[in-house]
């Protein structure tokens, strides 16, 4: 295609967009609605995934020593674990039994002091936070096998195991759902573009009659598809982010504790917005390609 042809195509496309105002409005609105729904699902899944991610990272493996194990012995095990897992350990804290008791009495002030310090009711406790929470099983097995250890609370007991399962499910389910919704969006956009093609089938017939190539006929529809998809994404994305930030600020005002679990960083929302715009552009391009090719093949 030479410069003259491209220039002609751009002029024709913009004229077509203006002439078929109602169809253009319908196609853009449809793309905006589809991408709004897609974006809303993606955002909901992103939030769920981020929530499980943060929760699982906050989860700690708690190792309780046998009561008469001394602090130095407990420290030995801590060092063994740190030496074995090294950089995998995000944080390890050894809490002496005195501190455990102090925390307990502070949390339960109603319990009378009956000389608990003498009785020493609590053992030393080691708390380990892993960078990759999925490796809890290995740490747990190592600690459980140690003779100084009485009990290890991790996995199911600490709620980590179901949380990790949920995290995995969110990731896989999220990808499947977004792909599925993306496909549905593509089909919807493609069908709307088919309507615009159908509305101009006479023009296409004339183009074919006077010897226009398939590429020549297809090009303005691709341009139009990109225009519909991108503008729809810009509108749908703006509406989604506008609505979402209002919801986030409402949550921050009403349930402040919940705010930290939400995805609302400017960079994160910018990624989402850019993703929607790129999706809109691609959906418009691929959707019009499919529709116009099907029309030209059947014609």
């Amino acid at each position: 295609m030479n410069f003259r042809t491209v220039e002609f195509q751009i002029v024709e496309t913009s004229a077509n967009i203006r002439r078929n105002g109602l169809m253009t409005a319908a196609a853009i609105t449809n793309a905006a609605a589809c991408l709004f729904v897609l974006g809303a699902f993606a955002l909901a899944l992103w939030n769920l995934s981020s929530m499980t991610e943060k929760l699982s990272h906050e989860s700690r493996i708690r190792v309780f020593f046998i009561k008469d194990v001394e602090l130095a012995e407990a420290k030995d095990l801590e060092q063994e674990i740190v030496a074995r897992f090294g950089p995998e350990i995000d944080e390890s804290v050894l809490i002496p039994r005195e501190e455990v008791l102090r925390n307990f009495t502070m949390e339960h002030p109603s319990i009378p002091d009956v000389g608990l310090e003498e009785i020493k009711p609590f053992p030393h406790e080691l708390q380990i936070k892993l960078r990759d929470p999925e490796r809890w099983r290995e740490v747990t097995e190592l600690a459980r096998a140690d003779g100084r250890v009485d009990e290890v609370r991790s996995g199911r007991e600490s709620g980590l195991e179901p949380l990790l399962k949920l995290r995995r499910m969110t990731r896989i389910g999220g990808i499947v759902l977004v792909v599925f919704l993306g496909f549905a969006t593509l089909l919807t956009i493609s069908n709307t573009i088919r309507l615009t093609i159908y509305a101009r089938r006479r023009e296409i017939g004339i183009m074919q009659l006077v010897g226009a190539t398939t590429r020549f006929i297809r090009f303005p529809f691709l341009l139009e598809g990109v225009f519909h998809g991108t503008l729809g994404a810009l509108l749908g994305g703006a509406a989604l982010l506008g609505g979402y930030t209002s919801v986030v600020s409402w949550i921050a005002d009403t349930i402040p504790a919940f705010e930290k679990w939400l995805v609302y960083g400017v960079d994160q929302l910018a990624i989402l917005f850019a993703g929607l715009v790129v999706s809109g552009l691609l959906f418009g391009l691929i959707g019009s390609w499919i529709s116009v090719s099907r029309h030209l093949e059947s014609g």
């Binding site: 030479n2 003259r4 002609f8 002439r19 006479r202 004339i206 009659l209 006077v210 010897g211 226009a212």
Partner: peptide, 24 residues
Amino acid sequence: FRLLTKKTAAENVGYALDVIGLPR
């Protein structure tokens, strides 16, 4: 006739040349 209703007579005739990319 199969003319494009939104184009003038000259534009309809020129259209056959536009689609084959003939210089202006």
